[in-house]
Amino acid sequence: MKIITLGPEGTFSHELALKMAGKAENIVLLPTIHSIMSAVARGEGDGIVPMENSEAGGVGETLDGLSKFPLFITAEMYLPIRHNLASLVTLKEMRVIYAHPQTDEQCSDMIEKWGLPVIHTSSNASSAREARKTPNAGAILSETAAALYHMPIIVKNTENSEWNTTRFVRIAATPSRHKRPEKCSILIDPDEDRSGLLHDLLGAFASRGINLSRIESRPSKRGIGNYVFFLDFSWSLKTAGALAELKKITTVKELGCYRKIGVPP
């Protein structure tokens, strides 16, 4: 089975896919999360996409894709994220930094300290390529990307927190069949706007002692003030009952129940 993930070479997604797949020939690199999800929906393989970061929060393109495409989460993985400032010049000579928007957020403390303008790019690899061809430029990227694009590391570990971690999910066209999953994810699209609606929705879990580990809202794309909600919760034998209760009062899209997979060193 092919693993489809975010390219080009040198992204954290690519780094994780290499750890999980073992061989580069089993990996397909695509330029956007939307294109990954489209390929997975066509049955071209399983996907690995970033879901959320401990510093920057949820990845909007992934959440929107899960809302749009008929896909399921079949596993989750956690990857510690270490950023580095790399450049062909010294920090004193640097005049601009290239960084992915999420990288910018995750390294905002150091960037503020340096006082240098940041130009956003589509990936770590793009940051490296732009910095290499721009005079007096630097890039914030992984150690892997720095080596791949022959960029000397000037400052190591530029992330705001030593606990900086990204949660990735594996997506597929069919759900996981694991008999004892650990976590479930759903999308709630409220059919009405009334006082106490969110309380009623969450009450289906609270009354059954089911632990909600995450709730995040995203624009529904149907106008300002209209939202959908993504929920993660611990799987239990009472999960089916909670979902049945929810479906009586709102629209629910089940995104799958799954387990955490350890990442090889």
Rank of each mutant, 00 (worst) to 15 (best):
L116C: 03
D64K: 14
L66C: 04
T121E: 03
S54Y: 05
G43Q: 08
A56V: 02
E93K: 14
K68S: 12
E112M: 13
G43N: 10
E61Q: 13
Q102C: 13
A99C: 09
G45K: 11
I81D: 00
G58F: 15
L63W: 14
A86Q: 03
I97Y: 00
H83I: 07
A41N: 09
P117G: 04
R82Q: 12
A39P: 04
H120D: 07
A41S: 15
M77T: 11
P50L: 05
H83T: 09
E55P: 03
K68H: 15
E61M: 13
K92L: 11
M37T: 02
S67L: 12
V40L: 08
E105P: 08
S54A: 06
I119T: 12
A41L: 11
C107N: 02
V118E: 07
P101N: 07
L85Q: 03
P101I: 07
L71H: 02
D109W: 11
D46S: 13
V96I: 15
M77D: 07
A99N: 00
A75Q: 04
L63V: 12
T62M: 10
R42V: 04
C107K: 01
L79W: 10
E76I: 06
I81T: 07
K68A: 14
T62F: 07
A86M: 02
N84P: 02
I119A: 09
H100A: 10
Y78P: 00
Q106D: 02
K113A: 07
M110A: 12
K68N: 09
R95F: 03
E105V: 10
G43V: 08
S126V: 14
